[in-house]
């Protein structure tokens, strides 16, 4: 528990909630990241520009934070194969369930959507089980 960081987690979380609320109130859009990314590649021209703007803002955020000496973490080394497999599963799964940790886990839960509550419980449980197996196999 030596890395326990509730305050920065709470503050960062509050920003996520604020972003989702502002986007919805001002523009009527859902801040679901998997949906925004995959939506870039559909033929809906009208939706393209705000999605691209949102993703641009996300990419730029690290440069906004750097002057405050908040930086990206040093990433743990992981096998290439598991990164590729994980990426594929995340992409495939989020399109089938129509949402990820943001769309279901924040906006859906906040709206008390039964679909999102179900989705969140399932992806949390699946992730916990995978990490449990990895720790038993000694890869963690």
């Amino acid at each position: 528990m030596e890395n326990f960081s509730p305050w920065s987690a709470l503050a960062g979380g509050a920003l996520l909630g604020l972003s989702a609320a502002v986007l919805m109130l001002f523009s009527g859009k859902v801040a679901g990241i998997s949906g925004i990314i995959s939506g870039l590649f559909t033929r809906k021209k009208k939706e393209f520009s705000w999605r691209l703007a949102f993703l641009t803002g996300m990419v730029l955020s690290m440069f906004i934070l750097q002057p405050f000496s908040i930086d990206l973490p040093e990433l743990i080394k992981q096998p290439v194969l598991s990164i590729i497999a994980a990426g594929f599963l995340v992409g495939f799964g989020t399109r089938l369930s129509n949402g990820c940790t943001s769309g279901h886990g924040i906006i859906g839960l906040g709206r008390f959507s039964k679909r999102s509550i179900t989705a969140t419980l399932i992806f949390m449980a699946a992730a916990v089980i995978v990490v449990f197996i990895r720790s038993r196999l000694g890869v963690l």
Partner: peptide, 8 residues
């Protein structure tokens, strides 16, 4: 499927 990828 998403959860498995996230945990991986």
């Amino acid at each position: 499927i998403f959860g498995i990828g996230w945990g991986l």
